[in-house]
Design a protein around this nucleic acid. Structure first.
Lengths: 198, 198
DNA sequence: GCGCAAACTTTACAGTGTCAAGTTTGCGTA
DNA sequence: TACGCAAACTTGACACTGTAAAGTTTGCGC
């Protein structure tokens, strides 16, 4: 069952990892099938044994990055001791993840093919993982407030939009805003939590 | 002084407009120098008389789109009668602009070359126009609150991040969130305005 | 009317995605 | 153990891309 190639232990995974390495160094404009193939030491058409086309490889890369992000978020949840501040910590981790790899943000979202269900009744199994983690945690945190489902969903979307927007802003190149975003995130996120209890 | 070509009245502008037409229909992946050249009825190398390279053309397109957005925002400011709700209206217009042309969002921001100054002392003349419009309006609206410059700036960044994040979320493809964003934006933005007076 | 610079065309080349046809390999079965 | 088959790879080809270089057309100032 193991996908083993004869020269390569596991070309498929190597391709994904090398590709991610390339985009995190040079951005996604400079990713090419042939470049990653030769970086893995195989001929230019070898990747087509594992991926239907470039889009298919990119899709696998996106899943990989999204999985990494999900792991980071889950780790925050598992190790957080101040449960009442969990949403702030999740938000901070979300922004920090993209700050550490600024190319990931546009890579994940610029192709407009990530499918996110923002409705209250979204199916957790099929939804975009990072959002679903945030959403489930938020539902737990907000249930005691007694908000209606609709209103609560609006609040959750707003909180996520803020966090997601901060990630977008913070990863912009050449921002001449010199103060470190890492130090500002918490302040800015806290600002918002004032509004959520009404 | 007018940049006139002999066969073409104004090839430079035509190229920009046709290019924007292409990306708004097919997304920026499908934009090529040769395609836009032939769409304008000129040979494939003609664009190089007006743009140093593809990046240069894209840069001009970005400026064009940003200018359109700025015009939209300015129009909102000029025609708004409820001045105390101006920030909500600006935010709504910002999101709506991108909802009407979903490809514009990733086109503007995915290349990570838009330069925005988020500091309180940003130079209005050299800053990214759409943000600067939002920022100036917010400063006017928030000055009566007596917030310190630093705190006010945090609030402004937070509000913009929310609006910008909403635009990002709302323009995601395949979102199975069926409720119309247009109807939701105002509710969500209003949610936030509760938090800004403290 | 002449000449020059700007706007364009033609030609060329290296790099890209991807297909088709060949080649190597590991593994299950006769 | 040998065979054969399918999966993993290589090679070669094609159309398309960005872009540089060299040639051509044009309008405008003198």
């Amino acid at each position: 069952m193991g996908t083993k190639s004869y020269h390569h232990e596991n070309l498929r995974d190597s391709l994904i990892e090398k590709s991610i390495e390339i985009i995190s160094l040079e951005g996604d404009t400079n990713l090419s099938m042939r470049k990653v193939a030769s970086a893995c030491g195989v001929s230019h058409a070898a990747p087509y044994a594992h991926f239907k086309n470039k889009d298919d490889l990119i899709h696998a890369m996106q899943e990989h990055v999204a999985f990494e992000l999900s792991k980071t978020l889950m780790h925050v949840i598992e190790t957080c001791s101040e449960k009442e501040e969990i949403l702030t910590y999740l938000g901070k981790a979300y922004v920090t993840f993209f700050l550490e790899n600024p190319h990931y943000f546009s890579f994940l979202f610029s192709r407009r093919e990530v499918m996110v269900d923002f409705s209250y009744n979204a199916d957790p199994a099929n939804n975009y993982k990072p959002y679903e983690i945030f959403r489930q945690t938020a539902i737990q945190a907000l249930t005691p407030t007694g908000l209606s489902h609709e209103k609560m969903n609006d609040v959750i979307i707003a909180m996520f939009a803020l966090v997601h927007g901060l990630a977008s802003i913070a990863t912009m190149k050449n921002t001449t805003y010199n103060e470190k975003w890492e130090d500002k995130i918490e302040t800015i996120l806290t600002l918002f939590s004032c509004g959520r209890n009404q």
